[in-house]
Amino acid sequence: MICREWNGDIVVFNQETGSTHLLDEFAGIVLRRLMASECGATVGELATALAHGQDAREQQESKQAVSAVVAEFARVGVAHADAS
């Protein structure tokens, strides 16, 4: 995966599929976290890493947002979902 960033927006090139995707700032942050984790990460781990100073309700919303982003990543082949 190759990324370029301009003013918070990220464009990703997937070398496996040859496809190019535009990510908004939040999706870009999730992707960075995912790429930084050597063995992948769960939605919960990603949400926790992004949940600085959030209350329980906000954390739940973050988890849902991360889950949606990861599902989209899986759909377009930017990330692989692992059921385990």
Binding site: R4, E5, V11, T20, L22
Partner: peptide, 18 residues
């Protein structure tokens, strides 16, 4: 036009980008 958007517009108009 945000540069990332401009990038994608160019990709969409690419004849042989892929």
């Amino acid at each position: 036009l945000p540069k990332a958007r401009a990038f994608m517009e160019m990709v969409n108009g690419g004849f042989n980008y892929s």
